[in-house]
Amino acid sequence: MNLDAVRTFVAVADAGQFQEAAAGLSVTQQAVSKRVAALEKDLGVRLFTRTARGARLTIDGQAFLPHARALLRAGERAAASVRPGSRALRVDVIGRRLAPADLLRDFHRAHPGTELDVVTLFDADAAIAAVRSGTIDASFRAVTLPARRLPDGVEATPVHDEPIQLLTGPAHALATARAVAPGRLAGHRIWMPGLVAGTEWAAFYDDLAAAFGLTIEATGPDFGTEPLLDTIAGSSVLATFVGEQTRMVWPAEHDLRRVPLHDPTPVYPHSLIWRSDNPHPALTTLRDHLRSARPRHRGAGVWTPEWAR
């Protein structure tokens, strides 16, 4: 439906005259008449009765008016969602059940008036390119590049270190352990079919495996979280890694166990990426919130890849 025609209809309805509506829209009275006529033809009904005093809504016009106003409001919201300077803060997260989404939820609870659009891009390379182009305002990612190798104008800062846990089924040898040192996992089969070579999360787990002599298998197709949990629940030899804040739901009969890793504790390094000249006011609010929201887990007893230190 032509929104200019709908906007003209509403203007005539509010003014009660075609001439006054034309003045308010900065168009000719003839243009107003043509738009209303085209809308009436499109709808197949008369919207106004022309009188000596102006224009009076017909019964169909009265029925259409509230919907016309709703159409215009929807059009404004749609335009604002992509219009620079007025759209919601657009933030990329690696997954909607992972720690960065949790960070954003905390931010929104603290600043409920801030409008957010949450998107999910594939990897850090795609996120950095989107930040650079201005398609998104910020991204939560592990950044494997040194700061000096980021594109000009793009900045990144560590904001949250997420401890990694072992996830096992009830029959696994480590299912009842209160905590496990990463080195004790050498010889155990860690299955992570979602690892994709060249991504930042694959780089993290490659370095984790190399540091502690682990075997992480990425064999087989990745059918998603539920089939992975089904397999882990029924296996006495397979386990997987998950982030401490990863939100997962499984049937009670799976009896899956989250086992903390200590001595040292591997942490996944989440950073915020943004463009330094981005003027969105909510971006500064988000950065300030993250700076004070959560402590980072660095120091003795913690392991993270060399590129994140």
Rank of each mutant, 00 (worst) to 15 (best):
Q30P: 02
E226N: 10
L261Q: 05
P269T: 08
F64R: 14
P251R: 15
A202N: 14
A173F: 09
T120V: 12
R257S: 03
A99E: 13
A21V: 02
P281F: 02
I136A: 10
R275A: 03
M192G: 08
L229G: 02
R35C: 06
G153Q: 11
P146E: 02
H111C: 05
T120G: 12
D288H: 15
L290K: 03
Q17G: 08
W307D: 09
D152A: 13
L261H: 04
L43V: 04
G194C: 05
A110Y: 03
P260Q: 12
W191M: 03
I232E: 02
I94Y: 09
H270F: 11
E115W: 09
P281R: 01
V91E: 06
L228C: 01
A129L: 09
S292K: 13
L195A: 02
L185T: 02
G213W: 12
D123F: 04
R50W: 07
E253K: 06
S276F: 08
R83N: 10
L47F: 10
A78L: 11
W303G: 12
L98S: 12
R50D: 01
G234P: 08
M248W: 13
T304N: 08
L57C: 09
T240R: 03
V267D: 01
T219W: 00
P146F: 04
L261R: 00
T219L: 09
E162V: 00
T176Y: 07
L57P: 10
P221M: 07
S139V: 05
A138C: 10
D60E: 15
L121T: 12
T284E: 09
T176V: 05
S139R: 10
F122L: 15
R53N: 06
T120W: 10
A181I: 00
W307C: 02
E226K: 14
E217T: 14
R109Q: 14
R275S: 06
S292L: 07
Q245Y: 11
R35F: 07
F9L: 08
W307K: 01
Q17I: 00
R56A: 13
G299L: 11
H160D: 01
V259P: 10
A110M: 07
P295L: 12
R105C: 02
R96M: 04
V10Q: 13
V154N: 05
G198R: 00
L98K: 04
S133F: 06
G16I: 03
D92N: 15
V119D: 13
D137I: 04
T144Q: 11
D277A: 03
T144G: 06
A177Y: 12
D255A: 10
A252I: 07
T219H: 05
G44S: 10
A31S: 15
R178S: 15
S33F: 09
R257N: 06
A74C: 08
T199H: 09
G16Q: 12
R148S: 15
T215I: 02
R46H: 11
T168E: 13
A239F: 05
G16L: 07
S81Y: 05
Y268A: 00
V131Q: 14
T231I: 06
H270N: 03
P84M: 01
T49F: 11
E306P: 05
Q29M: 14
A55H: 11
L283Q: 04
L238V: 07
L238T: 08
A210I: 04
I59R: 15
G187C: 06
W191K: 04
A13K: 13
T58P: 11
A11W: 12
P279E: 00
V259Y: 04
